[in-house]
Design a protein around this nucleic acid. Structure first.
Lengths: 249, 249
DNA sequence: TACTTTATATACTTTGTAAATGTATTAATT
DNA sequence: AATTAATACATTTACAAAGTATATAAAGTA
């Protein structure tokens, strides 16, 4: 192997952090603001995914876990690498931005970004950011917002990957609390895929899956008949993995 | 964004080139040999995937296309990025190798590799290599051979991705000549998935797929009843994409 | 040459299972 | 009592699984 024209690149990791509020799918975005030094007015406001460059002695996966922990405080979270973005012009959008005037010229270098998506139970998570605003946004909105760099493309690819994977792998449960109702699970699948699912068949199918385990507790604090709660048993799922063929919903 | 501890990495692309010989799935491997300067004996012989580092002004995808063209002479080939490998110790295996004595120390640096897999009609392809042997190997064999670096892991991941994707996307046809028999197509799916498929139902299902188009020609040169030939029509497939739900086979 | 053998391609049928759809009842709150 | 959603069960329809039969080529054989 000829290493004579060896070329070195910046490497960063971007985390697409997905959450579910029992209605729609959300994603974590970090706000960027820049005030014009002369007038003091806010000139730029856009959003980025949660990202950071990797450290020299750090595995890619660990960088993603670090970023996730910095932003959510959470550990042992479902995290999956889905794509790497390395177009030579991927920071070109930034060139037209005033950002270039205030930040390190390092941005002008070539930057590779490895994309990860995280699935978290967002119901009780508090988001952290030392210097900028950070918040949840509906994914549908985020796809039309002004995102920095190629974060639009990264988000879209993360969503596509999630939509695909959720059909055959039991990852949807990562977005729900430990106990959930079948309606909540159905709403989640609908939010991810964008399709509506027939309730009767969805229930019938789920009830005969041995890894969807009913609990004695019932739903609480709702203004109608409370639903039975369930939890997902990963062990049973793995034991019965070969018996399955088609969709999980 | 703080860029004070900016870190630069080597970036390379590895291509997992898949082919099909109407019996089994094959993959392209490049042989590495090193002769002991003292005795002249071959000390090391192992195999790598087709890979090379990226150029400074080159998109990741283009690097993959370049590597593929250098090795096969082919253009306009199905190529898909499937994962990026960035463990800090991913070249550690090489440390125990005598290779380190004869090559640039650059290998000791951290190297990120972006994995792509290519699907080609291998029936009429000639492989190129200026300095080393290059050949097709059955994937099953390759998975137990001595592959360099973490190429074992990369190959396995490529195979997993192919196995998954082939269920819902019409990429299997990339491994066949333009015209093929239904038996060849069935054998291909069996080779990829490792499962046997019922011939009667496979045929019935395929014959009612409008994008599997029968041709007037028949199979030639076989010592039994010649089969009808078909081709895959991508336009029809795309037009009828929403009508589909389940497996493609 | 004529006939048989061999190997695979191809067609059609029956059966079992799961999805799609229709209808009814239950259990909580307001 | 009205409202809202949860839950149960039955019927119909579609498709996959599995059984059986026939067609068409080359190659072998009398």
């Amino acid at each position: 192997m000829d290493l004579t024209h060896k070329f070195l690149a910046n490497v960063s990791v971007d985390c697409v952090i997905f959450g579910f509020d029992f209605e729609k799918l959300n994603v974590v975005l970090v706000e960027r603001e820049y005030d014009d030094p002369a007038t003091g007015e806010t000139i730029i406001r856009d959003y980025t995914l949660a990202g950071y460059h990797i450290f020299e002695d750090e595995d890619l996966d660990n960088a993603a876990y670090r970023i996730l922990k910095d932003r959510t405080g959470l550990e042992n979270i479902y995290l999956e690498q889905f794509a790497t973005f390395g177009k030579t012009d991927r920071v070109a959008k930034e060139m037209d931005h005033l950002w270039l005037k205030v930040i390190d010229k390092g941005f002008a270098d070539r930057v590779l970004t490895v994309g990860y998506f995280a699935l978290i139970d967002s119901t009780k998570v508090k988001l952290f950011s030392h210097d900028s605003k950070i918040d949840w946004f509906p994914v549908d909105d985020a796809l039309t917002m002004d995102l920095a760099f190629d974060h639009q493309e990264i988000l879209q690819k993360a969503l596509d990957t999630l939509r695909n994977k959720v059909r055959t792998e039991p990852i949807a449960f990562e977005l729900l609390p430990e106990c959930f109702t079948l309606t909540q699970l159905q709403n989640l699948y609908q939010a991810i895929t964008g399709n509506i699912i027939d309730k009767r068949n969805f229930r019938k199918k789920k009830l005969q899956m041995p890894f969807i385990v009913p609990r004695t507790e019932k739903q609480d604090g709702v203004a109608h008949r409370p639903a039975r709660l369930f939890h997902f048993d990963r062990n049973i799922f793995e034991q019965t993995r070969n018996e399955r063929f088609g969709n999980l919903f």
